[in-house]
Design a protein around this nucleic acid. Structure first.
Lengths: 248, 248
DNA sequence: CGGGCTATTGAGACAGCTCAAAGCTAGTGG
DNA sequence: CCACTAGCTTTGAGCTGTCTCAATAGCCCG
């Protein structure tokens, strides 16, 4: 689908809670500073550590923000979709990208220079406040992941990751909720902080139990409630044997 | 040390980069909305999950922000000191505290109601922008921890935690850099995502190697460079060609 | 000088990782 | 339309870093 610059901007802006509360005149001012771009699947919008030359407002498609460790292991920090801002947030701090952004599918996005972006913030206080709220949400979600990583085991982390994804990118289909992005086992591992092998085994097991339906780069959540139970109530070791012997 | 309300406010405000760029008149407006409070060591400023009734600007002392999992395990999300804002950031999102704030020592802080705080943001655009930059920094640091937790092993995470603490709360003393807060092994474990036993063993080992000097609730970094090496260059399995050959 | 944290140390268990080897699946090009 | 191939997934078999548990020792304050 090809859109004119105007249409693209409008559609992106309309979806973005970031621009809520701004007047029409403000929106026109904003739109003038954004430039349309296109990225193919697997293409990088920018690379970790590079000096920031542009931020992006997503119009179509999804990107993942990843960080790579010295030995090549990757972690997915965020999945971002239409209406979301890519690269801007953590960059306000020191001007280098803290992660790389990779297109998960074909992506249309609107770019803006850091300088223009900062100017917009100064000119439109509403925008700064909206962005602050947005950042607050991100912070909250990253905090949760941080806690999960240190206190919960792989299986439950995966269940939580799937729940989160369902809320974020889930699409209702007849069998249940489809995670509407091409997610390999590897990607799920990088989101939940485990290995692709553990993900594969666990998904298979849940499919056997009727909780999910899995396929190549595809997960459908059949039993949302069961998944929530796995995410929240799953006891640490085995589940059944209650209490050894109270034996009065 | 007891300070008048005015003096307390001024000292806190002066330290806070949050208020950089604000005029004298603005500062007076701000100061009027804050109310002084005091908390003893181990006292909670607020509890996870509760509806936010106040945010705090730290004046003296330190607090830790923690999240607790169902089975009681804790994670320390942040350590916050003078000039920093406690509770406000992630709260802008949904109005409940995402973690609990506990005083590490005696704490003086200035409280402000969420409504007043939001009003300030509307009235003083500079403040929103400053806060945005501050949030960006937090986000960046949490992202790094997230990556470390999933890709690095306990020993290195601990080294990084110590480095980070040195930068944040380190105080030069004759033996090296003292971490200027009462940090138990347990607390270090909760900061680095490991167990207090692993922390104890590892610190002891590093003390043997002359990198640190450890005591009860006390760590002094003797060899900063060695610690940085441990944090960055430590290969996965064993590291040094220390292996004493049984015989040549 | 006792009581209560805090820290150390050893021994054992295990979740989840690593590695290796097929098995699938979806494109692609002849 | 069918082989071919590349990438994704599954499955099995160890291995080990780290946690758990238990017991002891040390330090500080009342």
């Amino acid at each position: 689908m090809v859109l004119t610059r105007e249409a693209l901007a409008l559609s992106a802006f309309a979806r973005a809670p970031l621009f809520a509360g701004l007047g029409q005149a403000d929106l026109v001012d904003l739109a003038a500073r954004f430039h349309p771009h296109h990225f193919a699947r697997d293409e990088a919008l920018f690379h970790e550590g590079h000096r920031a030359h542009a931020y992006y407002l997503m119009a179509e498609g999804r990107v993942k923000i990843i960080q790579t460790s010295v030995d090549g292991a990757e972690v997915i920090l965020h999945l971002l979709g239409p209406g979301e801002l890519v690269g801007a947030l953590p960059n306000l701090d020191d001007g280098t990208y803290p992660g790389s952004a990779i297109a998960l599918d074909d992506v249309s996005a609107l770019s803006i220079s850091p300088a223009d972006f900062e100017a917009l913030l100064e000119l439109h206080p509403r925008l700064a406040i909206n962005l602050l709220h947005y950042a607050a949400g991100k912070l909250r979600s990253v905090h949760s992941r941080l806690r999960e990583l240190t206190t919960e085991r792989a299986e439950r982390r995966l269940a939580r990751t799937l729940s989160r994804l369902a809320a974020q990118i889930g699409r209702g289909v007849e069998a249940g909720v489809l995670l509407d992005a091409p997610l390999t086992r590897q990607a799920l591992a990088e989101l939940s902080g485990t290995s692709l092998f553990t993900v594969s085994r666990t998904l298979k097991e849940w499919e056997r139990q009727g909780v999910l339906q899995v396929g190549r780069e595809r997960v459908v959540i059949v039993n949302t409630h069961a998944l929530a139970t796995l995410a929240d109530d799953l006891p640490l070791p085995a589940s059944h044997p209650q209490r050894p012997l109270p034996h009065a």
